[in-house]
Design a protein around this nucleic acid. Structure first.
Lengths: 194, 194
DNA sequence: AGGGATCGTTCGTCAAGGCGAACAGATGAT
DNA sequence: ATCATCTGTTCGCCTTGACGAACGATCCCT
């Protein structure tokens, strides 16, 4: 039961504009572009870019989008601080391996550090009644790769049958199920907290 | 070398402003807020919000940021089009990764979205000469879980022997190796970019 | 020394975003 | 029915972002 505060103390709280300022310069230098060159590629005035990197300015979405395209980086990399926001992990969703059913065993391989919002599990199931998992925090995505046996998994109303080697991604913030179709079934589960 | 389109092909290509329009309305209704109420919470004029949801308008970052805070959603959810929620990649399908060594096949299951910095692969190897991977960007961590066969993997100077079900985490920003010890070996690889 | 080419900055101008007020429609209370 | 209060819209005004030009500062090459 790990509980992170929603808006915990962050080393240096940054306003989105400060974040844009630093990440814009960082990505530009990473790409090895001069301010003038980037402005030309993004089809914006270099004066605008200069002010943005200087910290003054409040760019419009179109301006930032053009810069993101020119830098070949996704949009959010320019506005999200380099260290991801600390988010809440609600009670019961921590590293503990809770299993009501004995036929379900989950092993936490790599718990979610503050800098990377994902857990990696190995889950083993035996055929029987399906295990129904309650919704996790909004934005959670689960990635399942079957290592052995066969599984039926996915959102509660729309599960998918999977064989060895199959990969399935589905939202973890709604009720979802895991069910073994063969004995000795197991899979690697990456739970991603967006 | 892995090469994939930066922005996944989506059924209907949307400009960022169209995306903002639809996702803004979607998130607002999900939160059960009226347009007026949301405008008040975000401290923006409701006329501004009305125009944004209508599709006209090119909001500044501060405006969008305030809306993201008021809606309690990450910034990127307002500008990135929602990706299909349930995806299945059958064994053997999916984008294969061409490799110099014929005995190595990597399949990219989930490329790194903007907000989550990780890729998920399945890698298949056959016994033979070890595959040496060049260092990735600094801060990269690789998580390996063996699904079948046996592997020898890890940093180039200090590899580890792994059997079925074993899990290994090691730095990906130095030279590292993968080598199959048994025929038909494969593993799930989570590459994390911190 | 001089060009000639970049670099990133600051300036004034213009269009556009954001604002508040006034608007019409819907709902509920008296 | 009337008033009250909400909904979301459209209007004119004003601030502000984005632009282009001119600027000084570095370099590199004659």
């Amino acid at each position: 039961m790990i509980q992170y505060a929603e808006h915990e103390v962050v080393p240096s709280m940054q306003t989105p504009l400060e974040t844009i300022s630093v990440s814009l310069r960082r990505e530009r230098e990473r790409a090895g572009l001069s301010l003038s060159e980037l402005a030309k590629r993004a089809s914006i005035a270099k004066s605008t870019l200069s002010q943005l990197e200087a910290g003054s300015g409040n760019p419009s979405v179109e301006t930032l989008w053009a810069l993101g395209v020119a830098l070949d980086v996704p949009f959010s990399r320019l506005v999200e601080p380099p260290e991801p926001r600390v988010r809440v992990i609600r009670s019961g969703e921590g590293p503990g391996v809770a299993s009501e059913q004995a036929s379900f065993v989950g092993t936490l391989l790599s718990s979610c550090p503050p800098s990377a919002r994902r857990d990696i599990y190995v889950i083993s199931l035996e055929p029987g009644s399906p295990r129904v998992a309650e919704p996790h925090i909004p934005g959670t995505v689960e990635h399942l790769t079957v290592a052995a046996g066969r599984l039926r998994a996915g959102p509660e109303g729309d599960p998918v049958d999977l064989a060895v080697g199959d990969y399935l991604a589905f939202p973890g913030d709604v009720s979802h199920v895991y069910e073994a179709l063969d004995p000795g079934s197991w899979a690697v589960l990456v739970m991603e907290h967006t």
